[in-house]
């Protein structure tokens, strides 16, 4: 049993129960959690990301796929920890202070998780100090800042400044995103990268951690 195409299809089309069932079958047949993750779940989410970026998939389809993904991950996670498989990297994500929109941020979280990252979701209206605290205690490699309003974009700079003033800026890579955010803005405020959308954020996070 080496063919993961059926499992991938179930993730892509959001079939939660089938994903759980197929994942268990692969384990029974002797596959390791890491093999199933790398061969089935991660490639499936990569396809979901491509379809989303093209406009073929929309938010509901992406959320369904995420639910299906989680059904598989829930089974694999304890086994991965047992066998000491490290995540690709740790990422703290959150919507910046003054802003309470989180659908975009959640989509980024889904895509990162589905690509093998460990994601710590700080929630919405997150203060610069909170970002620093979470990044510090989790030992995060990457911090992702989201803003949906042009008026809350300055809070991204405040957050970067907070990392700077706490002497932790060199420990993390900071990426930003959200409807009004631009590549230029990322450069202006000294962020390490800008993600156009949830799918794009994955490639960005990988490049930031040198993966």
């Amino acid at each position: 049993m080496d063919d993961y195409s059926e499992l991938q299809k179930c993730v892509i089309t959001g079939k939660k129960l089938e994903v759980a069932e197929t994942t268990s079958q692969f384990l029974d047949s002797g596959k390791t959690a890491k093999e199933i993750l790398d061969g089935g779940l991660i490639p499936a989410m990569a396809i979901v990301g491509q379809k989303f970026e093209a406009g073929e998939f929309f938010i509901p389809e992406m959320l369904l796929a995420a639910r299906a993904l989680n059904a598989g991950l829930d089974i694999l996670k304890p086994l991965l920890e047992e066998s000491d498989v490290k995540p690709l990297a740790k990422v703290v994500i959150g919507t910046v202070k003054g802003d309470i929109h989180d659908i975009g941020k959640n989509l980024v979280g889904i895509m990162l998780r589905g690509s093998g990252f460990e994601v710590i979701d700080a929630g919405v209206d997150v203060s610069p100090a909170k970002f620093v605290e979470l990044a510090n205690e989790s030992g995060a490699d990457v911090v992702g800042l989201s803003a949906l309003l042009t008026t809350t974009m300055p809070a991204m700079k405040d957050t970067i400044d907070e990392f700077e003033s706490m002497g932790l800026r060199s420990k993390v890579k900071i990426m930003i995103g959200g409807a009004p955010v631009t590549e230029d803005y990322a450069k202006t405020i000294g962020a390490d990268g800008f993600g156009r959308n949830a799918a794009n954020a994955v490639g960005l996070a990988k490049s930031l951690v040198g993966g």
Binding site: F58, I59, P60, L63, I100, D102, I103
Partner: peptide, 16 residues
């Protein structure tokens, strides 16, 4: 409505 959890649920369900 923006800070109500059901808003985001309704929003996602209403996209179709």
């Amino acid at each position: 409505i923006a800070d109500r959890p059901e808003f985001q649920d309704n929003f996602v369900e209403g996209l179709n």
